[in-house]
Deep mutational scan, measured.
Amino acid sequence: MKVIFLKDVKGKGKKGEIKNVPDGYARNFLFKKGLAIEATPANLKELE
């Protein structure tokens, strides 16, 4: 799953980066803790 990092996550990504991460990791950790959001076309446009 492609995500946009909202905060730095040690060993995974830095704020503003767009990366592919495992689906479970994104849903169960990154999204729940507010560390990242899904890289949807709308979210990507908002980032620019």
Rank of each mutant, 00 (worst) to 15 (best):
G34D: 05
E38W: 07
M1F: 08
E17F: 03
V21Y: 06
K15L: 08
N28Q: 10
V3K: 00
V3F: 00
K33M: 15
A42P: 08
N20F: 15
G13P: 00
K7G: 05
K19Q: 08
D23A: 15
V21N: 01
P41I: 12
E17I: 01
A36M: 00
K32D: 06
K45I: 11
N28H: 13
K33P: 02
L30W: 02
G11P: 04
R27D: 04
N20W: 15
E38T: 05
K14D: 05
K14L: 12
K45R: 12
I18W: 03
F31E: 02
L35S: 03
L6Y: 03
N28M: 10
E46P: 07
D8F: 08
A42R: 10
I4L: 11
E46D: 14
G16F: 09
G13W: 13
K14G: 06
K2Q: 13
F5N: 00
A39Q: 01
I18Y: 03
L30P: 02
G34Q: 09
K32P: 15
R27W: 12
D8N: 12
K45H: 09
G16T: 02
I37V: 13
A36L: 01
N28A: 12
G11K: 05
D23V: 15
L6D: 01
A39F: 10
K33R: 14
K15A: 13
A26M: 07
L35P: 00
V3I: 08
T40D: 06
A36D: 00
M1P: 03
I4S: 01
A42I: 10
E46M: 10
G24W: 15
V21I: 09
K14S: 10
M1T: 14
L6M: 06
Y25A: 06
V9L: 06
T40H: 06
A26G: 04
N20V: 15
L44E: 06
K33Q: 12
A42L: 10
R27G: 03
K45Q: 12
E17W: 04
L35F: 13
G16I: 01
L44P: 04
K33S: 09
L30R: 01
E46T: 13
L30A: 01
E46W: 15
P22L: 08
K7V: 14
V3W: 01
G13Q: 02
D8R: 04
T40E: 05
D23K: 15
L47K: 08
P22H: 09
R27E: 09
G16V: 00
M1L: 15
R27P: 02
V9E: 01
L44F: 07
P22I: 07
I4V: 10
F31Y: 04
P22T: 09
A39E: 02
V9H: 02
N43S: 10
K2T: 15
K7N: 07
Y25G: 03
